[in-house]
């Protein structure tokens, strides 16, 4: 059971990393750099789009950059 869970975490590693680490990291960056967001968009929404989007891309493509 535990092994299966660990395998699952590694299988979806990029997505887990994107949502788990990059989302709060992007949010912290937006707040720290005091970036003004248009139309009252929430910093969390932008962070979710960036972190989640990057994680999803890396999950599908198998790479965080353009080269594999």
């Amino acid at each position: 059971m535990l092994v299966k869970l660990i395998e699952l975490i590694f299988k979806f590693g990029p997505l887990v990393f994107g949502l788990g680490f990059l989302v709060p990291l992007f949010h912290a960056l937006i707040v720290r750099l005091d970036i003004a967001l248009p139309f009252g968009i929430s910093a969390w929404l932008i962070a979710l789009a960036l972190g989640g989007g990057l994680g999803l891309m890396a999950q599908v493509r198998g790479s965080w950059i353009w080269q594999r």
Binding site: V16, F21, A28
Partner: peptide, 18 residues
């Protein structure tokens, strides 16, 4: 390592962890 990074990030210490 990744649990630590994620835990720190959601505790408001994302920049420090990064």
């Amino acid at each position: 390592f990744y649990s630590f990074l994620i835990g720190m990030a959601w505790s408001g210490l994302a920049l420090e962890a990064a």
